[in-house]
Design a protein around this nucleic acid. Sequence first.
DNA 1: CCTTGTGAATCGTTTCACAGCC
DNA 2: GGCTGTGAAACGATTCACAAGG
Lengths: 212, 212
Amino acid sequence: MKHIAESTVRRLSLYLRFLEEGEARAQDTISSGELARLGGTTSAQVRKDLSFFGSFGKRGLGYHVKDLIEAIREILGLDKTWPVVIVGAGKIGAALAQYRGFSSRGFRVVGVYDRDPARIGQRLDGLTIRAESELERDIAKLKAQIAVLCVPSEAAQVLLDRVTKAGIRAVLNFAPSPLRVPKGVALRSVNMATELEILTFALTNRIEGGPR
Amino acid sequence: MKHIAESTVRRLSLYLRFLEEGEARAQDTISSGELARLGGTTSAQVRKDLSFFGSFGKRGLGYHVKDLIEAIREILGLDKTWPVVIVGAGKIGAALAQYRGFSSRGFRVVGVYDRDPARIGQRLDGLTIRAESELERDIAKLKAQIAVLCVPSEAAQVLLDRVTKAGIRAVLNFAPSPLRVPKGVALRSVNMATELEILTFALTNRIEGGPR
DNA sequence: CCTTGTGAATCGTTTCACAGCC
DNA sequence: GGCTGTGAAACGATTCACAAGG
């Protein structure tokens, strides 16, 4: 398959949200123009994004909402439930472990891990915080392929190496340090300070910060 | 000034981090090649990024670490302290209110707000959670220009409208719904589910793409 | 008419390559 | 010799515009 830009995938995720809202309102079909208006893009962009993966629409009519939802779910790999482990049960890790937005979209947090004995054994929304030493065994047992890293910078690379050796193939990192991943492992990093800095750049340069 | 790409600003934020690490190790100068290696990009990219804003290097030598730190801080608007208000003191809002990565980089959380009477008055790391009704008065009094939105989707647009009317000019949004901002207000949204979906897309579509 | 799907054109970003300076 | 700064070339993403189908 051709290479797909990250921006395309991000927009597909957005379209999916609008489609689900449409489905909830019993909307039957939707045009590329309407999706574009909702998503702040152009109809040509919507059609191009979808056309990478197939022909889902009907000329003169638009896209059938339910069919397109199913198609995009399959494209994004959301047609199954993904077990996710959260590494680090500090403030951010604990918040994410209880975040409803994950479970409502095909992700299931199956484990939360920390090295601090004071935290191990505490309960978070139906999950018990476990010792970091259990990570390897649990990842194998639970067949988890996705990890969310919420540990301090100093620990991030070591833990990333450990979880990828144990079978994790995708990592969402919240530590504010750049990480190296083995080939074949997907990595995304969210750096809160960088996000704020993009805003202060916009403020000091009086530029508009576009939607992401 | 010419339009600067978001990717450029993001890289500047990254370079700044490496430069600060270099400064801590008493490193005097750094080349574009070294910055590139650290940041996973190319030396030409580093030089191009910097050249949008001026000539900071010396040919044959590289960049003086301290000077470049100062220059990038000024470019990003980090040469002053920005008061930030956090709207919504749920799990994510509370975690961010206590996040050390903000305060260590020129951001000062000056207020945390919630509408839930059970939360109002609770203390978070030296701050007292205040009533959402105080937002307008406090934003004016504290001259805050940046808000971090950590409220449920349904409330996000209403609160965004309120804070922008009160003087906020940049918003970092964690609610998973698209928002509209008035002209002249910068907005960035971080959607945790979308980040995970980009990862599941990568996992699902790893057809070709090299040996493992 | 309406709207999709898509080659072609445009626009923006990254990489190349080298002149200029330390 | 080493490294920056920068036009030019290459690459990639978005927008245009239109043929084709409901």
